[in-house]
Amino acid sequence: MMFNAPESQKMNTNAAPVAIADPKKVDLPTGFKTVRTPDPEPRPVRVHADDVCVFYGSKQALFDVSIDIPEKAVTAFIGPSGCGKSTFLRCLNRMNDTIEGARVEGKITLDGEDLYDPKLDVVELRARIGMVFQKPNPFPKTIFENVAYGPRIHGLARSKTDLEQIVVESLKKASLFNEVKDRLHEVGTGLSGGQQQRLCIARAIAVSPEVILMDEPCSALDPIATAKIEELIDELRANYTIVIVTHSMQQAARVSQRTAFFHLGILVEEGPTEMMFTSPAEKRTQDYITGRFG
């Protein structure tokens, strides 16, 4: 409804935090305690974040975010523009490393391994935690080469048939295979927006990641393509741990099992999606969900 205003595209590409003048901002970020509601039946935790702060130069974009991300479930990050949800998502596979002047404090673990351990190779990490971006960004190569890109650079296929199998499997998992099976060797940029985004998902799946991060994957798509992607996300949940940033609360409600609400760089509240949308514990969550701001 009224929350579907597209978030500034720049936000995710350069991730410079936009200071939102919000009249409802009453308390200082420090010392704030996130309100947490556990799942009725607790799921195993895959990713665990502890007091994560992010700075861009001298500006702080995230304040002491702590969260557990459960496996084989979809966790949605919601919140108004500039609240830090994308910034936090990018911390999870260290994409913030690519931004000059960005600094991350705190601890994030995947299966207990510290992601920011200097000994850890970010290449290996990103192969385990894949990412899908806001705007479909297939490479200007053929569909086949797009999907084969990951397996090729990581050396995952032992033979040509092996590689072909991985590509076909990935396209099938991204429910794109049937649409493109006759034109695997045409350019990927020639597909429709929704197909391109599914191609990007297939590309991410091809390296068999354990976690898939999705940064507003549908914000550039029309409703029909969006519905397809949402369907796909629901299917992928069986095998992957998924984190999705979304601007649309309906989408969060449709696809996710858990929801985290960010505001002004703070994780305000997190809990089971159903509960978050029906009886949030925090006033600000309530206000956001009912459309009083954002």
């Binding site: 690519t98 990103r126 971006f133 490479f139 890109y149 390296v207």
Partner: peptide, 11 residues
């Protein structure tokens, strides 16, 4: 976006 796409895959 091209760079992010590739780096995000672990290249």
């Amino acid at each position: 976006a091209m760079r992010d796409g590739s780096l995000g895959m672990g290249a």
